[in-house]
Amino acid sequence: MNQNKTMKDMIADERPYEKCERFGAGSLTDIELLAVLLRTGTKGENSLELARKLLYPDTGVQNKDETHLQNWTKEELMKVQGIGRVKAIQILCLCELSKRMAQLSAGKELDFSKPDTIADYYMEDMRHRRQEHMKLLMLNTRSKLIGESEISKGTINMSLVSPRELFVEALMKNAVYIILLHNHPSGDPSPSRADILVTRRVKEAGEILGIELLDHIIIGDNCYVSLALEGYLGNA
């Protein structure tokens, strides 16, 4: 399909609207789905080509994750020719909706005793972030979530992750168990030395206070590592 054609030049089965109507939304490519939402392109460039530029930008950035559409800000989107304030906001809302729907779907099967279901639930929220974010998940005696809190932003290390502040939060919620969760923007969830040190420090502090650290899960790009399953908590 020649994406430089105008929509009127394309045969009906090539146009995203008509293709969706005839064959269903599942038949559309990612580019075609975004083109339907963009509706219009620019002079000399139809909505399909504009969608392609947004989804697969030729920016020269070595790390492909940095160019992922969900990472873009409104200001960055508006720098693309053909994307004004309204379209930029629509795209941001689309990305947020897709993230929430992914969480809603994963949440139906969420079991805090299973690292895979926890990783699935938080994957879309965390895997596109440009910086490391660490969450504290707090659970009751039945291992049900009673609260979550973001406790660190930036490179994870012992100076940024304070067990004292972490457990103050957990004690206020009357948590019996906690789980640490953070992302690696590189996409590789392999634990660093700092990750392991933080995990051990929090585990030891929890043993003194009677709040058990069940796991520390590291989110990568559609993959994860559970430090409990890897044996770093001594209970795998």
Rank of each mutant, 00 (worst) to 15 (best):
N157D: 14
L227Y: 01
S186M: 11
L233H: 07
A12M: 01
K43N: 03
S143K: 15
N46M: 04
L69Q: 06
N4R: 10
L28P: 14
R130N: 08
G154Y: 00
I208T: 03
N140Q: 09
I219R: 10
E169F: 03
N157Y: 10
V36I: 11
P189F: 13
A88Y: 13
L213N: 11
K135T: 03
T42P: 00
L197S: 04
V198R: 05
K19Q: 01
L34Y: 02
E76A: 09
A12T: 04
I146F: 06
V198Y: 06
I31L: 11
L92M: 10
M172S: 12
Y17F: 06
R201A: 03
G234S: 10
S159K: 14
K79N: 11
E148N: 15
L166G: 03
E124L: 07
T199Q: 15
A106N: 03
G26F: 07
H216K: 07
R85V: 13
L181N: 03
N222H: 15
C95I: 06
E230R: 09
Q3E: 09
I118D: 06
R39P: 00
S192N: 09
L48H: 07
A170F: 01
L54M: 08
I83L: 01
E132Y: 04
R100K: 15
L94I: 09
A119L: 14
P57L: 01
F23Q: 02
A228G: 10
E212N: 04
A25H: 08
D195L: 01
C223T: 14
T6G: 00
R193T: 15
S47N: 08
A205Y: 08
A88I: 13
A236L: 04
K114I: 15
L137A: 04
R201W: 10
G82W: 00
V61S: 12
E96N: 04
I218T: 12
L145P: 09
G210V: 00
G84A: 09
I89C: 06
D65M: 13
L166E: 02
V36F: 04
A102W: 01
V225M: 13
L197T: 08
Q131A: 01
E14W: 05
P191H: 10
L97H: 11
R39M: 14
R130D: 15
D215E: 08
V161F: 05
Y17N: 14
L110P: 00
L33F: 14
G41W: 02
L48Q: 04
L34S: 03
